[in-house]
Amino acid sequence: MKTVLAGMMLLVATLLYAELDWVDYDTARSSAEKEGKIIMVMLSQEGCDACWYMEEVVFEDDNVAAEIAMDFIPVYFDIKADDIPEKFTYIGTPTFYFLTAEGKKIERLNGAVNVKDFTTLMRDVKASVKKR
């Protein structure tokens, strides 16, 4: 019963959220607190093949998009255009940070990964938050 329900919710979410709803970091912190979600920060830049892959392939995947919409608040930084908070260090793009509503780092991902690995990573991040 529970799985059926979860499946239905996922389906609804899929229909509702085809695209990611990127917000700025401050907005993300307050909404994360209110909605009990996890902040997902992406550091990106223009003309970056690997970022393009994440945005156009991985995040276009319906299940990934739905899962992000349900449990994460996505934040987008362009390293060439935006001021990046000091704590988000990177050696290149894309770099992902998963943070609690208080801004505490849960996980960091360097570079692009495929749909399967990104899904696993999101599940693990969620699991480790529940554990705390």
Binding site: D49, A50, Y53, I79, G92, T93, P94, G111
Partner: peptide
């Protein structure tokens, strides 16, 4: 110059 790694990471200019 600017480049990337085939593993999926692009470096800064």
């Amino acid at each position: 110059y600017q480049g990337c790694s085939e593993q999926g990471l692009c470096y800064n200019p």
